[in-house]
C-alpha cells in the first residue's frame, strides 16, 4: 500500500520534473515546476513531515514560483523567441545527449548492482514544528541569523540598484 502510493507519486513527480525541462513554453514549464514542488510536499506528508510539507508549499510553490511567473509574464516570452534562441546550437545538443546518456547508463548500472535496503523509519517528530524549530533556532541559531542578514543585504542591494537605474 505504502510503496504503491510512493511509486505513483514518484512517477508523477518525475514526469512533471521532466516537463519543466522539455516544455517549450516558459509559462507551462514554470507551472510544471509548481506541480513538482507540490508533489514533493505530498511526499513529505507521507513521511509524516507535515511542517516541512507546509513550508515547501508556502515558500516555494506559493511565493517564489509566483514571482517567477510574474517575471515571465512581464517579459512576455513566447514559444517562437525561445525556439529561435535554441536554433543553431546543434553541437550543444549533441553534447547534452551524450552527457545525459552516459549519466543515465551509469545510474542504470548502479541500480542493478547496489542492493537497496529497506529505509529506516523516520525518527519520532521528524519534520514536525518542534524539530524544525529546534534545528533552526537552537542547533543552528547563528548560521540561521547570518543567513537572514545575507538576505537583508541582498534586498538592500536590489533597492539601491533599482534606484540608480531610475535616476
Amino acid at each position: 500500500m505504502g510503496s504503491v502510493t510512493f511509486f505513483l507519486l514518484a512517477t508523477a513527480l518525475v514526469v512533471s520534473a521532466l516537463t519543466v525541462v522539455v516544455h517549450p513554453n516558459p509559462v507551462k514549464s514554470a507551472m510544471a515546476l509548481v506541480a513538482t514542488l507540490f508533489l514533493l510536499a505530498v511526499e513529505f506528508v507521507f513521511l509524516g513531515a507535515h511542517m516541512i510539507a507546509a513550508l515547501q508549499v508556502i515558500v516555494y510553490a506559493g511565493a517564489i514560483m509566483v514571482l517567477f511567473l510574474f517575471v515571465i509574464m512581464l517579459l512576455n516570452l513566447s514559444d517562437e523567441e525561445a525556439e529561435a534562441r535554441r536554433r543553431g546550437r546543434a553541437l550543444f545538443r549533441i553534447g547534452a545527449w551524450i552527457g545525459g546518456g552516459v549519466l543515465a547508463a551509469e545510474l542504470a548500472a548502479l541500480f542493478l548492482r547496489v542492493p537497496f535496503p529497506a529505509p529506516a523509519a523516520p525518527p519520532a517528530g521528524y519534520g514536525g514544528a518542534e524539530s524544525v524549530a529546534t534545528a533552526l533556532f537552537v542547533d543552528y541559531a547563528l548560521p540561521f541569523e547570518l543567513t537572514s542578514i545575507l538576505l537583508l543585504i541582498a534586498v538592500i542591494g536590489t533597492v539601491v540598484l533599482a534606484q540608480r537605474r531610475a535616476s
Partner: peptide, 14 residues
Amino acid sequence: LNVGILYVLAMSGL
C-alpha cells in the same frame, strides 16, 4: 493536522 494554520495559509497561497 498538527500544522493546521500553515496548511490553510499554504493552500490560500496557491
